[in-house]
């Protein structure tokens, strides 16, 4: 069992051996995030072994005795599923950022409307104008404004000072 994986490893084929459970678990903790595409080699199909396979994050298994036939198909499918998973994770991160940015813009507009007596449309244009002037994204402008506002009001119980 190597100490850790070589840098920029794309594909990891890992033998799940019961007698090396602790070494395997230690090795798995050293994997980078995102982990490489992982295929497990298994000799047994009992739940104690399955548990290790699941913990490893393997997306395919190669059964012992290992035969060349099926390896390429497993490799192709696993790499494809891994790429789709990475894409989905990226999309999820982007949408999460977008939702949080939208919420920030909404709060910033509310602050402007209350503080400067603007209607929603005017508040939006004001926010966009400030962002353009400083050449930053409207979401970042909104966050600054909200943070400034929050810092200015006196902290409630348990709040930051």
């Amino acid at each position: 069992m190597p100490e850790r994986l070589p840098d920029r490893t794309d594909i990891l084929i890992l033998a799940i051996e019961d007698h090396a459970r602790e070494d395997l678990r230690r090795f798995l903790r050293t994997l980078p995030n995102p982990a490489p595409t992982l295929l497990a080699i298994v000799g047994y199909e009992n739940p104690a072994t399955l548990q290790l396979v699941l913990e490893s994050g393997a997306m395919a298994v190669l059964s012992r005795p290992i035969k060349p036939f099926g390896l390429l198909t497993n490799l192709a499918i696993t790499r494809n599923v891994w790429k789709q998973n990475q894409q989905l994770a990226r999309d999820a991160r982007r949408f999460k950022r977008k939702v949080m940015g939208d919420q920030m813009v909404l709060r910033a507009k509310t602050i402007l409307m209350a503080g400067e007596g603007l209607n929603e449309d005017e508040a939006h244009r004001e926010l966009r104008a400030r962002a353009m002037k400083r050449r930053i994204a409207i979401e970042i402008m909104a966050r600054e404004l909200v943070e400034m506002h929050d810092a200015a009001i006196p902290a409630g119980p348990g709040g930051k000072t």
């Binding site: 019961d18 007698h19 047994y44 009992n46 739940p47 104690a48 072994t49």
Partner: peptide
């Protein structure tokens, strides 16, 4: 012992 039968039987 450290192999498949003991792990599974103990589980």
């Amino acid at each position: 012992s450290d192999y498949v039968y003991p792990y599974e039987s103990n589980r």
